[in-house]
Each structure stands twice: as structure tokens, then as C-alpha cells.
Design a protein around this nucleic acid. Structure first.
Lengths: 219, 219
DNA sequence: GCGCGCCCTTCAGGTCAGTGTCAGGATCGG
DNA sequence: CCGATCCTGACACTGACCTGAAGGGCGCGC
């Protein structure tokens, strides 16, 4: 399941992100509404977690706009404001559920599970890129109808590209995705993994931008 | 169809009662085990919904006693999320199914429908995976026409795979399914159970994705 | 109550795929 | 043409995974 988290609190946000990835879902984390808008422009999500108080505006109008343009993605509101009026406003704006901070991470898991169950049985959405078919939930890739098996690292890398198609990703960004800071890798690991990906998925799939990074080529 | 609901939570109980009556069934609602015993003394039911945590005792011994005296009424267990490990015990005690709170009322309707169909003499829907035939409602697996007996843990594990075919399931997800969060298992139990499942169901049935988890192979 | 048997967990030893590193060659930009 | 950057085959090592066996807990039959 793909989740979009819109939350400016870095501590809470990190905790939520970790919990959700531990539950086996993938997550994108926007810290501002405009950033969230960018994510929504390029990808579809199965669930949105929305904080109501954000640096560049309140969540309700954002949610209202989302619904107005026909987006029916389930939305769970996260907020410190436990006032009933906010709750009502949130539900009026089109939220599906509501959680008041501070909340238990296990409770979050429970609600996630409820949403996920609603999706169980439905086929997963497929992303198509030329002759590639990508099932982000199942972590599977098919090339010309035949399954391609990717290793853990390869998948993480490829997922980064698929989630941000057309977008230029620097090696630093990719390294962070693979190794999350801690170990400053100083060899050409990324290049090697990109090379292996290309061998499996097709040479022209990932294009290199000299001195800058890589980008998923247009279908 | 006649349903006996054993549940002490008045809010959840009322919701379930309303849903079931709305579905056109009749229901008796006991809030304690001794009360449930009285109902069972005077009437026969087609289905029992059993909460595991009740004011006057736990559900498992009750269920065990029920089975011991030959009652084969289908039983669906209702359990809170933080008691998932109870479901193992529940299956051992003779439950037919379980639902984790909070659950969708529509999901409840679906399971009721399954029981009703079986009650009416119609066979359950079978999931076919190569030479395997799986009856999710009856908890039975046949391989090449011959019945395969799975233990409680094996079944829970296998069910997780069948419910999400093609999907990659991490060990963390599987552990959570088997043990809830509480007891962070630190050994290779999952591996051992997968190994046993493979031995019973066929080596190639469950494929391992190194560093990521397991997946039910395509038929 | 008491043993018996089933099931689950843990452990240890062995195997091998995945990964990081490196080096030589290819390619690009200026 | 030269330096910087990137590509990719080869290789060794780590740790993830498999599996047989041992030990303990629990229900069940006697």
C-alpha cells in the first residue's frame, strides 16, 4: 500500500514513517502542502495522512480542493487540535477518519490495516513503463510479460525512480535512500547497481545525466 | 439464520447486532459466558460470534468445552488487535474463523454470507494454486486431491500468503500476523515454519526474496 | 493426576546469493 | 586531445537463509 504523509513535525513524522514501512507499506513524506501537491501530481496513493496545521496553510482547504477535483483517496487527519469544531470541519472537508495527537503507533497500524483490508482482494494498481509492468505493492516487475527478479537493493533503487518518473535523482539522494545516511559510501556502488538494473530492465530505461545523476526515461 | 453474539462491549455489540438484523438474520446477544451458556442450553444456533476477553473468563476454554461436547456450530472469533496471538489459541480451540477489531461491518456481512452458504449446503469457494486446492472458510488444503493437514501456525502463515497472492510479505509482517507486536521474536521461527510449509505444500510454492521476505509463487 | 504425543521455539552448522570494491576500459565534455 | 566521469566484469566476503535435531510446553487420553 502506498501512503502519503503530510506532516511538518520531524519527530512525529519519522516515527510514523518507520512504523508504516515496518508494516510493509511504502511512504512518501511531504512537510508542506505545496510539496504534497507535487507528490500528488506524479503519483497515486492508497491513503493520505494529513496534519491540519502546516507551515504554508491549513489542511482543510487542501483536503476540500482534493475532493473537489474528484480524488477519493482515503484521508486520515492527524492533529493536535482536539476541539470538536476542528473535527467536524475535517470530516466536512472530506476526511475518512481522525486521529488526535499524541496517538499510539499501534493504533495507527490498526487504522492502516482497516484501510488495507478494504483493498485486499482488489488487484494492485500497475505502473506501466514501455514494456515494463511494475506492481509497487507486490514488489514485482514484468518485462514483456516475463517476470524479472530484482534483489533488495535493486528494488529500492528502482522504486525510487518509479515513484518519481521523469525526475532527476542525484547519486547523493539515491545513496541516502539505500543507506539512510549512516555509512558514507565512498565507492561507485550506485553506478554498479544502476548498471545491474539496466542489464535486467533494458539499457535505455535509466538515462544518466553527467555530473548530476540519473533519471527514469520516458516510456 | 440464527446467530449468537458473545461480546461485552456494548457499542461494538450493538453495531454488530444491527448489521446482522439488517442482513435478515436473527440474533441473541450474551454479554457474559455464563449468559451464553444459558442461551446455548435452550436454543441451537447456526453461527456463534465469540469475543475472547469477557468479564467472567476467556473465550478459548469456553470454545474448547463447546467442541468437547460435540457442538460443531461454526464459531467466528472477534479479537482486538493486540491479542493476535490469541487467534492461534482460538484456532487450536476449534474456531472456524476470526476477525480482528476494528473490522468493517461489511466484512462481517461477507463472512456471515460464507457461513450461510455453507449452511445452505453450497460448497465454499475454492482457491486453486497449481495442484493445491484451498478452502479458506473451512481451513482445509488439498494437494493433488489428497488432504494436507496444517498446524495452527502453519495455517495462519499460509492464509497470509493466499489472501495476498503474488504479494511480497516481509518477515516483520508475518511475525506480526503470528505474534502481534508484543513479543518481538528474535529467532528464525518464520524461516522454520516456511520450511515446514514448503515440505508439506511443495518446495516451489513459496519463493524467498532475499533481504525482503517471501511470496506465494504463481500457479 | 500422570505420562504421551504433538507442536512450537531455539540452536547450530552449512550453503550460497547479494553486495561492495576495484580496475581497466569506454565515453563524454570542453 | 585530455581529464573527468561513468560503465561493467570479476571476485571475495558477509550475512541471510535453510534445515535437521533437541528441548520444553500444553492438551488429551488413560
Amino acid at each position: 500500500m502506498r501512503v502519503l504523509l503530510i506532516e511538518d513535525d520531524t519527530v512525529l513524522g519519522a516515527a510514523v514513517r518507520d512504523q508504516i514501512t515496518a508494516d510493509g507499506h511504502s511512504i512518501d513524506w511531504a512537510k508542506r502542502l505545496d510539496e504534497a501537491g507535487q507528490y500528488l501530481d506524479v503519483a497515486a496513493y492508497d491513503l493520505i495522512l494529513l496534519d491540519l496545521m502546516l507551515p504554508d496553510g491549513r489542511g482543510q482547504p487542501f483536503l476540500r480542493a482534493l475532493r473537489k477535483r474528484g480524488d477519493v483517496t482515503p484521508v486520515i487527519i492527524l492533529t493536535a487540535l482536539d476541539q470538536i469544531s476542528d473535527r467536524i470541519e475535517g470530516l466536512n472537508a472530506g476526511a475518512d477518519d481522525y486521529m488526535v495527537k499524541p496517538f499510539d503507533l499501534s493504533e495507527l497500524s490498526a487504522r492502516l490495516g482497516a484501510v488495507a483490508r478494504r483493498y485486499a482482494g482488489n488487484p494492485n494498481p500497475l505502473v506501466t513503463l514501455g514494456d515494463l509492468q511494475v506492481d509497487l505493492a507486490a514488489h514485482s516487475v514484468h518485462r514483456a510479460g516475463k517476470p524479472v527478479s530484482l534483489t533488495a537493493r535493486e528494488w529500492v533503487l528502482f522504486e525510487a525512480f518509479v515513484q518519481r518518473p521523469q525526475q532527476l535523482l542525484s547519486k547523493a539522494q539515491l545513496e541516502e535512500r539505500l543507506y539512510s545516511f549512516e555509512s558514507e559510501i565512498e565507492s561507485n556502488t550506485i553506478e554498479v547497481h544502476v548498471s545491474r538494473l539496466r542489464k535486467k530492465l533494458g539499457r535505455e530505461r535509466i538515462e544518466t545525466v553527467r555530473g548530476m545523476g540519473y533519471r527514469l526515461g520516458a516510456p
